[in-house]
Structure formats: structure tokens, C-alpha cells
């Protein structure tokens, strides 16, 4: 489990394993654990946690392991410890289904409360969990406009400028010598940035998928891919070599 292992690994030189870039004039850092950090405002963004995904499936008769929430929170804990942010924004699909936060076992509720202590926490509503959260610290909102950026779950089709969004779980495929490697990624063309899904039991959608059409100016599009222990930044045009 690559990100879980990385979460407990010691990192000597964070600058070498992360990627700095600029979205609508704001400097952002892509953390290899899958979170975005804004140093100037000490704001940390994570997206698509999909907490309680295992339980959501179990409710429908598929008994997936009940450990995904635990694992995702471990990684979240590590990335919060690294940056000690003033504000945490969870960009929607925080829970895998509507009843997820209400049925959350107490141990996890306690953990989230600990993580949120001493900082602001904003739950952006997603399509999986449009009703906000139950009995958890922080506030719920459909969108957040802050520090010159707009934070929302689904990327908007009208106003790309300065948007940080999630929802699509972007992943990029590198092809070299007829071999393909696919990894989740931060995708940005300098106007907007799409966040990789942070939840450990979530899949990805390729940047070439139709759902991504029209979201980016392709000549400027860069995929900051989550590698085993660092970010690899690859231009869209260079993905297929």
C-alpha cells in the first residue's frame, strides 16, 4: 500500500519529492500523499476522501474490508502533521454515501476531532454526500472562495479561472516502449487544478476520458503524478512517449 507506507516514511527533502506550481497566480505545493498545500495561507486541500466506502458496500451486500476509513485517516494525519495547516478543506465526497457520516464508528469520529483541533475545517459537499456531515467538527458548504481561489467539488464548465476541484479522480497514463503505467495525479493547466482522490479505496479516471474534455487548455496541461515516493510531473503531450 504505497501511500500508507509513504505516510509513515521519513522524508529528508520534501522539496525534492513534491511539486510546486502556480494556479491563477497562487503558489501551491502538490504533496506526494495526494494533498495540496497553499503555503501563503497555510491552507491544506484534500479531495474525495470517500470515508466509509467499505461500509457503504457492506450495506448493499458486498462485504468489503472495513479498514479503508482507518487507512485514509492515517494518511490524512500524516499530511496534516507535515504542514500543520491553519485551514483544512475537504473538497467533497468526504463520505462515500449520504448516511456515511451518521453511521461513522466512534473511534473514527474521535480521530477526526483530534485532527481538526486548533484549525478551521471546511467540508465541501459532494455528489455522494450532498447533505453535509453529522456530528463532526467544522462547517459544511457547497463552495468556498478564499485567497483568490474557488474551492468546489465538481469542476464548473463556465469559470475555470482559479478553481480547485475534485470529483473526477484524475489519473494519467504514461506509455513508454509499449508499456503503460497509470497513477492518480493533480491535473492543472495553470488556470484550474483538479485534485487526485485522497481516499485509499478510490479508483481513477484517465485524463483522456470524455468527462475531462474541455476542462483544460491541453498545451499547458501538466499531470503531477503520485509515484511510489515522490511526485512525477509530466506534460500531457509527453504522456505517450
Amino acid at each position: 500500500m504505497q501511500r500508507l507506507a509513504l505516510a509513515s516514511a521519513k522524508i529528508e527533502d520534501f522539496g525534492a519529492v513534491s511539486a510546486r506550481t502556480v494556479v491563477a497566480g497562487v503558489e501551491v505545493v502538490c504533496d506526494p500523499l495526494g494533498a495540496l498545500y497553499l503555503p501563503e495561507t497555510r491552507l491544506l486541500v484534500v479531495s474525495d476522501l470517500h470515508l466509509e466506502k467499505g461500509a457503504a458496500f457492506a450495506r448493499r451486500g458486498m462485504m468489503l474490508p472495513p479498514y479503508d476509513t482507518l487507512a485514509t485517516l492515517k494518511v490524512l494525519e500524516a499530511v496534516i502533521a507535515r504542514h500543520d495547516p491553519a485551514i483544512v478543506v475537504s473538497l467533497g465526497d468526504n463520505f462515500h454515501d449520504r448516511v456515511g457520516s451518521a453511521h461513522l464508528p466512534d473511534i473514527f469520529r474521535v480521530k477526526i476531532t483530534e485532527l481538526a483541533r486548533g484549525r478551521d475545517w471546511i467540508w465541501i459537499n459532494g455528489n455522494h454526500d450532498p447533505d453535509g456531515t453529522v456530528d463532526l467538527p467544522g462547517q459544511s458548504a457547497d463552495e468556498l472562495h478564499y485567497a483568490g481561489l474557488a474551492f468546489r467539488h465538481e469542476p464548473s464548465l463556465i469559470s475555470p479561472a482559479g478553481e480547485i476541484a475534485g470529483h473526477l479522480h484524475p489519473a494519467a497514463t504514461v506509455i513508454r516502449r509499449e508499456k503503460a503505467v497509470r497513477r492518480p495525479c493533480f491535473a492543472t493547466d495553470g488556470r484550474r487544478l483538479l485534485m487526485p482522490a485522497f481516499g485509499l479505496m478510490t479508483g481513477g479516471l484517465d485524463l483522456r476520458h470524455r468527462a475531462m474534455t474541455g476542462l483544460f487548455e491541453r498545451p499547458n496541461l501538466v499531470a503531477h503524478m503520485l509515484g511510489r515516493d515522490r511526485i512525477y510531473s509530466v506534460r500531457f503531450a509527453n504522456l505517450i512517449g
Binding site: 513508454r176 508499456k179 509530466v234 506534460r235
Partner: peptide, 19 residues
């Protein structure tokens, strides 16, 4: 041969070096 697990990151590094 198809690429095996361990070698995957080297492919990423190769692509990233292009950048």
C-alpha cells in the same frame, strides 16, 4: 515482456525527466 510492478516507477521517472 510486460512491465512488472517494481519497474513501474522508473517509467514515470523517464517521462518526468522529459519535462
Amino acid at each position: 515482456e510486460p512491465v512488472a510492478g517494481e519497474a513501474q516507477d522508473s517509467l514515470l521517472a523517464e517521462a518526468a525527466e522529459d519535462l
